[in-house]
Simulated assay, not measured.
Amino acid sequence: MTDSYDRVAVVTGADSGIGKATAVLLAEHGFDVGITYHEDEEGAWETAALVREAGKAAAVRRHDLTDPVRAAHVVDELAGELGGIGVLVNNAGTGSSEPLLGMDYERWRSVLSVDLDGPFLCAQRAARRMATEGRGGRIVNVTSVHEEYPRVGAGPYCAAKGGLKLLSRVLALELAVYGITVNTVAPGEIATPMTGQEDRVPRAGSRPGYPIPRPGDAREVAAVIAFIASPAASYMTGSSVFVDGGMVTMGPQAAGALQSGDWR
């Protein structure tokens, strides 16, 4: 695998949480960073300021994945402003929390659009540029433990994340000839605004059902993404890395400990 790809990264949804932590860490590792946001423009510019404090260039664009075709053009805009693209981190996403029987089609499609259609189109844009340049690259798709494990009330989210896992593996097969690797990072519960928590170091002992009994920190996920985005990960493609404190290993163990059917 070539490792001469542009030291320019585009991180979607980098206005807070995992995306913000990833953008800052990639800057510290020598990447100029393109930052996208949906609604939190102030947060995006805060991320850009941190990237610049690390001595690297930053560019910011609004990115509305409910219109994924239009949103994908942002990848080209950021690559044009920053002088290329060597890494794409598809981090932006949304969730769902309602039973499938009562869900209308528009709601279903809105989640699939953001969590699956958008990453596909952004990856396609980035990969075309990487392939044309001929220097390789990295695509990292942030999924969830729900790329593999179901959750009540999260039907479209689970379907999208599971689809993104297999999309990533097909891309890994198709893009390897260009020196482009494609992998997924699957976080568990991370203390971010998306999970309704503040972006601060999680309190130890607060999740007794997890082997590591706390939520994760966004910087812990960012560290894994940064490794996969680095030249050191040149022989890694088509893989999923779970960053979940061992949560998914607790399936049979946790099921046996339940005393009620409230989970339904």
Rank of each mutant, 00 (worst) to 15 (best):
D199W: 14
P208E: 14
M194L: 13
P68C: 09
P119M: 01
E106M: 08
E98Q: 13
N90C: 06
D67A: 10
V10K: 06
R264M: 11
T143R: 04
D64Y: 00
S230P: 12
G238E: 02
A123V: 01
H73G: 12
G153R: 03
I85A: 00
G95Q: 05
D115V: 05
Q197F: 04
R70T: 14
M130S: 07
V24T: 14
M250I: 02
A48K: 02
T12M: 02
A49W: 05
I139F: 00
A126Q: 10
D6E: 13
V182R: 05
W263C: 01
V87M: 10
R52F: 01
S16A: 11
R138I: 01
D64H: 01
E147R: 11
A48Q: 06
K56Y: 00
D15M: 05
G86N: 06
V114K: 05
D32M: 00
S96H: 13
L112I: 10
G261N: 06
T2P: 10
T12N: 06
P68D: 04
G93I: 12
H29G: 07
L100V: 08
Q124F: 02
S16D: 02
V140C: 03
R7C: 00
G84R: 09
N91Y: 01
V11W: 06
F31M: 03
V152Y: 14
V75K: 03
D262F: 05
L65R: 14
G261E: 06
G43P: 02
V170W: 15
G261T: 12
P119F: 03
Q259M: 12
A218H: 15
S4A: 14
T184W: 03
E147Y: 08
A71M: 09
A229T: 01
A59N: 04
V145C: 08
M1K: 01
A14W: 00
S239L: 11
H73L: 05
T249A: 15
A218Q: 14
E39F: 12
V11S: 01
M194R: 12
N183P: 08
G196S: 06
Q253R: 06
P208T: 13
E53D: 15
A123Y: 03
M194Y: 08
D104Y: 12
T132R: 15
G19Y: 02
E53T: 11
H63S: 15
R125P: 00
P68Q: 03
T132N: 03
A191M: 08
I85D: 10
V201N: 05
P252S: 03
M130H: 09
E42I: 13
A14Y: 08
R7S: 06
V142E: 04
T94V: 11
Y178N: 13
G155I: 09
I85V: 13
D117H: 12
A49P: 00
E148S: 13
M103H: 08
A9T: 12
S96F: 09
A14M: 00
S234Y: 06
I228G: 11
T12F: 04
R138K: 13
G162S: 09
L112Q: 05
A232T: 07
A191C: 07
A172I: 10
G261F: 11
Y37F: 14
H29M: 11
E28Y: 04
A44W: 07
D3K: 13
